[in-house]
Amino acid sequence: METFRTGAGRPWGDHHGCCFCGTDRFFRPGYEANLIDAWLPALDGVVEKLKGGSKVADIGCGHGSSTVLMAGAFPESSFIGYDFHAPSIVTAREKAAQASVSANARFEVKAVKEIEEGGFDLVCMFDALHDMGDPVGAARAIRKSLSPGGTLMLVEPRAGDDLTDNLHLLGQIFYSASTLVCTPASRAQEVGLALGAQAGFKRLTAVLEEAGFSHVRLAVQSDTNMVIEARA
């Protein structure tokens, strides 16, 4: 109640552990159904690079489900999962070991602006940018970490640009989660832009362009998510 009275926000790490597990369980089926067979192939030339061996960052990886899926599908590439929530990184490492992908997938506890490593051919963000206090600053840091010709794959909840476009069952679910978890998490961080889970393609494009990306396009959509390709 105090979070909503003050508008100060609630840090992601202050939630019960079931929130992190539940978030993974909510999104993972969509990743399993779409990531390897539909989303990555929709990006220009990315699958070919991954097959040959690329350096990939998965930022805001949570329990690592997306990272583990990609590492298993593309053993010639190396993957680093980053998240600022230490308990989630512990779980991600366990999942990688269980899936036998620890050889090409590692995980580190770091916020996006703290990442010093660069030269990434692909940077992925799955349902995470809207949770960040400074999404423009985060996207700007990602742009700088990309190798020449590198790609940002931004996966966000599927939403229309106008409120009326989102007045359906799935939209109600995303708005509810955004109100209770995503927006307070953003408010608890620097800037506190409170982008929200239903920002829409137009607003997300504005964020990426402000961060310095000159090529932004909607690559593909599933029933629940939109996949945006961005290049410097």
Rank of each mutant, 00 (worst) to 15 (best):
M70L: 15
E116C: 08
H215V: 15
G149A: 11
M125E: 07
E190M: 09
R187W: 13
A230F: 00
C18Q: 14
L50N: 00
G81E: 03
S147F: 07
F126S: 01
A73Q: 07
R106I: 05
V136F: 10
Q189L: 11
G62I: 05
M226I: 12
V227D: 03
R140W: 05
V220K: 05
S145C: 11
R140Q: 12
A185L: 05
V220N: 06
G192Q: 04
P41C: 11
S66L: 09
N104G: 06
P87F: 05
L43V: 15
D127P: 01
A185K: 01
A139C: 13
R217Q: 14
Y175I: 04
V216M: 14
H215T: 13
A86P: 06
C182I: 06
G160P: 01
S222K: 01
A103W: 11
Y175L: 10
M125A: 10
A97Q: 14
A73C: 08
K110M: 12
P87Y: 08
G118H: 09
R5V: 15
V90A: 12
V155Q: 00
G9N: 09
E209G: 03
V46K: 00
C182T: 09
R217H: 11
F4T: 07
V90Y: 06
T91E: 15
E117R: 02
T151S: 05
